[in-house]
Design a protein around this nucleic acid. Structure first.
Lengths: 115, 115
DNA sequence: TTTTAATATTATGAAATTATAATGTTCATG
DNA sequence: CATGAACATTATAATTTCATAATATTAAAA
């Protein structure tokens, strides 16, 4: 007997929801969401992203670290710069649904938002 | 000329991402995620949910309010109890994708998780 | 091997989120 | 219309997240 069951009678396995919830919260930040839309079409170096987003290099790096730790994005080193890209393309389908459900304006480029 | 362009040269329209990000963060809590999986199949009264989740009525009510304010769930009053249900069914497709992308164990009932 | 460019990490104060406790509201029933 | 059951709201202290500033790492170039 290894106590393989749940001791606390109620609160049955909230742990199952922790990793999904964490990923949702990580994606749930305007800057990180915007990063995802930029990475949707191509790789970006950290510096390119910092210029585009207009935030500090340090802050950007922390946002990228959060996304990278969950393997939502992937890093590739080239010389002394680092390029980031989407880890699993299907996450873009997921974000497309999010856009459809929760946003009024289009978020991704080439979705009818250009003029 | 109505200044219809963006004054701040960088930081172009992070506002577009605010509502989507907010919804992701609201869904990104273990308890609220579990509530969504419970509401997936049927309506629940607040008290039923409180018993099932094993959390205080007050805390539960606050979680429900957050979900309701964004119209992710919908309330229906019947006597002096209130029943909640999923607002837009498509959010379940969205959460199914989340599960597939970010979770190891299945979250929803009847997904191969029963024994 | 020092220097420099590019990126990452750490420390820190401010702001947002959370759970609890206490109080308020709504509505059926006597 | 007073009471109790079901739910909502508010205040608050603890925790978490966030942006900034300072410092550290990494790798190319001098």
């Amino acid at each position: 007997m290894f106590m393989s069951y749940n001791i606390s009678r109620k609160k049955p396995s909230l742990g199952k929801f922790a990793s999904g919830a964490r990923c949702l919260r990580i994606l749930g930040h305007p800057v990180r969401l915007r990063i995802m839309t930029l990475l949707a079409t191509k790789e970006w170096s950290v510096n390119e992203l910092a210029v585009e987003l207009g935030i500090s290099q340090s802050n950007l790096s922390q946002h990228l670290t959060l996304l990278k730790d969950r393997e939502i994005i992937v890093a590739r080193r080239e010389g002394h710069q680092v390029f980031y890209r989407i880890g699993e393309k299907k996450v873009l389908v997921f974000l497309g649904l999010m856009e459809e459900l929760f946003c009024r304006e289009p978020l991704f480029p080439g979705e009818g938002g250009e003029e």
